[in-house]
């Protein structure tokens, strides 16, 4: 009887897990395996699977070729630069905003609401709006610049030296509020009595900030930075809206992948590139998870 019970328990367990498992296999594991297979072929979008021609590691060789004109490496550099600049500017601005919004003042909730609006909007829609704002001839931005007296106005979407920053600014506009929100949570989590103790201990404001506020809010800030890093790595919408894919000045991992797969129909090469991106994402995610674990350990110690 005991074994009967056990086997029916076993059946129950598998029955409960099965739907999730099937979904996982169908939507994640199989596509990944198929993607890996494709990455070693010269498949195109219009070919039947039977016609895929195996090319060994040639796709990967092409991606990693040490060459000035290697657009895969260039897209990687552009993305890295984008992530680094976007995340650090957003973190800095967000934290400064949170610090300056910490004291109570009349109308604070309205100010907060205004600051938070960008974050609530759809990135794709906002990208299209910014596309209009940035328009060289008719855009609001250049009209305003001309109005205040600038003789020559930048070509926001065409100037090779400016394009990248045009896109960066949209991201900063969109995601600084997120950093501000997390920073505010981090600052609010520091209890008042800590500041009272510091006041009794005669700490100057700078000492309080450097020795108390900053270290005590840092864990959440790092968490927010990691979240934004994984997000910014995927940058696609703004590039598509402002320059479109296939622009060497603004090509990111995602837009390049899109270009190769869905415009050039080179599925094999695109798949290889997708695998490289996956490895990068896994590396960042691992950092992220390690950090979360460390946070949990610290909390255990508390």
């Amino acid at each position: 009887m005991a074994t009967g019970q056990q086997s029916s328990d076993g059946l129950m367990k598998w029955g409960l897990v099965a739907p999730a498992l099937l979904l996982l296999i169908g939507l994640n594991i199989f596509p990944l395996a198929y993607n890996i297979r494709l990455s070693f072929t010269k498949a195109t979008l219009t070919q039947a699977p039977a016609d895929h021609e195996a090319v060994g590691g040639r796709n990967y060789a092409r991606i990693f070729k040490a060459d000035e004109s290697n657009r895969y490496a260039a897209a990687l550099r552009t993305t890295a630069r984008f992530v680094l600049m976007a995340v650090s500017i957003e973190l800095l601005l967000g934290y400064l905003l949170a610090l300056s919004l910490k004291p109570r003042f009349p109308g604070k909730s309205v100010v907060l609401l205004v600051f938070l609006i960008p974050m609530m909007l759809s990135p794709a829609v906002m990208a299209l709006f910014w596309n209009l704002i940035y328009d060289e001839e008719f855009g609001v931005l250049n009209q305003a610049l001309r109005f205040v007296g600038f003789a020559s106005v930048p070509g926001w979407k065409t100037d090779t030296a400016v394009k990248f920053y045009t896109i960066l600014m949209i991201d900063v506009w969109m995601w600084t509020p997120f950093m501000m929100l997390i920073s505010m949570a981090a600052l609010n989590a520091i209890p008042d009595y800590i500041y009272e103790a510091a006041e009794i201990d005669r700490a100057r404001r700078w000492t309080v900030f450097r020795r108390i506020t900053l270290p005590m809010s840092a864990p959440l800030l790092i968490l927010a930075a990691l979240l934004r890093t994984t997000d910014a790595l995927k940058q696609f919408d703004y590039v598509m809206a402002i320059t479109g894919p296939n622009d060497p000045a603004t090509e990111t991992l995602s837009t390049l992948m899109y270009q190769v797969m869905f415009r050039n129909f080179k599925v094999g090469l695109g798949s290889a590139y997708a695998i490289v991106v996956l490895v990068i994402v896994i590396a960042v995610a691992t950092l992220f998870i390690r950090y979360l674990d460390r946070l949990r350990e610290q909390e255990h110690a508390l």
């Binding site: 009595y193 103790a197 005590m216």
Partner: peptide, 14 residues
């Protein structure tokens, strides 16, 4: 003045 708080108010990260 020196102040001793009921809930200690120690700096948790130090």
């Amino acid at each position: 003045v020196g102040f001793v708080f009921q809930f200690y108010a120690l700096y948790p990260h130090l």
